[in-house]
């Protein structure tokens, strides 16, 4: 599969570090960041294909961050991270255009599969945009 970049956004630093490490071990180009605002800023400067986004964060919460991201980068695919206590926001996330969600503590294989599917979708989307531009 072509190289692609994944951004993980979560305020729980332990979780963030482990997941970045695990993904890297599986040859995924993963970057971690600990707030929605910082994630949005980073997206201005760097290119990412898939974002994994915690729904529960202080400051800008996951849903608000998701909306902003989709506004700025409509082709970006976002996977929501929900805890047992935040399923309601998971549902909301799906309605606001998240590609999928993963329940914490995320099973790494499940997550990896979803990341791949999300990336595949982004590639399909880009291809479609290119096609329509060519016509």
């Amino acid at each position: 599969m072509k190289e692609f970049r994944v951004l993980i956004v979560d305020d729980e630093l332990d979780f963030l570090e482990t997941i970045v490490k695990r993904l890297k071990r599986r040859q995924v180009d993963a970057t971690g960041i600990d707030s929605g605002i910082k994630a949005l800023e980073l997206l201005e400067k760097e290119h990412f294909d898939v974002v994994i986004l915690d729904v529960r964060m202080p400051g800008l919460d996951g849903i608000e961050t998701l909306k902003e991201m989709k506004k700025k980068r409509p082709l970006l695919e976002v996977i929501m991270l929900t805890g047992h206590a935040s399923v309601e926001s998971g549902v909301q996330g799906m309605q606001y255009g998240a590609f999928d969600y993963v329940m914490k503590p995320a099973d790494i294989n499940d997550l990896l599969e979803k990341i791949k599917a999300a990336h595949e979708r982004k590639a399909l989307h880009e291809e479609k945009v290119r096609e329509t531009k060519m016509i």
């Binding site: 998971g90 549902v91 999928d100 969600y101 329940m103 599917a117 595949e120 979708r121 399909l124």
Partner: peptide, 21 residues
């Protein structure tokens, strides 16, 4: 955007999301 999907898994994921409540 058409992609291959395991519908059982897809539904099960959503079922888990509403199951708790």
């Amino acid at each position: 955007l058409i992609q291959g999907a395991d519908v059982n898994k897809l539904i099960e994921d959503m079922a888990r999301l509403v199951e708790k409540e």
